[in-house]
């Protein structure tokens, strides 16, 4: 009989203690970030989708169209094309396309790039209504950014 009442008492005590914890937190300030009103800042190393780096001197790209990123990409989402232009050493980038629908943001392409021509963007607001919206023409984006 004593055990019966002790059980009831211990049970009730644990419940009250639990309610005490939640009551304490009820009056503490909230910890959530009010997202659309307060935008988070991305850390330096944040791995967004990739972006071409602008050449600090010319404003063009640093890409030498070696194709290492295309080869390194596990999902095959990068397409690079270049052509020979008279008077310029090496190839000139004509197309740099990222199929973001396949990209898994692993960053192997950035590591494989010797001239450091690609980097991670800080974009995190990525949503779209159509699949085609996620095929990024990075060269065009670079030019748009320049403007």
């Amino acid at each position: 009989m004593g055990g019966y009442f002790k059980e009831i008492f211990d049970g009730a005590h644990s419940l009250v203690a639990g309610m005490g914890v939640t009551l304490k937190y009820l009056f503490q300030p909230v910890v959530t970030e009010q997202y659309p009103h307060v935008a988070p800042t991305m850390p330096d190393r944040f791995r967004g989708h990739i972006e071409l780096v602008a050449n600090p001197e010319t404003g063009g790209t640093l890409c030498i169209v070696c194709g290492m990123c295309q080869k390194a990409c596990p999902s095959g989402c990068i397409t690079v094309a270049g052509e020979k232009v008279e008077g310029v050493k090496g190839k000139v980038l004509t197309k740099y396309e990222l199929d973001f629908t396949k990209c898994s943001l692993c960053g192997i392409c950035v590591e494989s790039c010797n001239p450091g021509a690609i980097t991670f963007s800080k974009d995190y607001n990525l949503a779209g209504l159509r699949k085609e919206a996620f095929i990024y023409d990075l060269k065009k984006r670079l030019e748009e950014r320049k403007r």
Partner: peptide, 8 residues
């Protein structure tokens, strides 16, 4: 619920 869970 929100304030108990420290959201608003």
């Amino acid at each position: 619920a929100g304030h108990i869970q420290r959201r608003i």
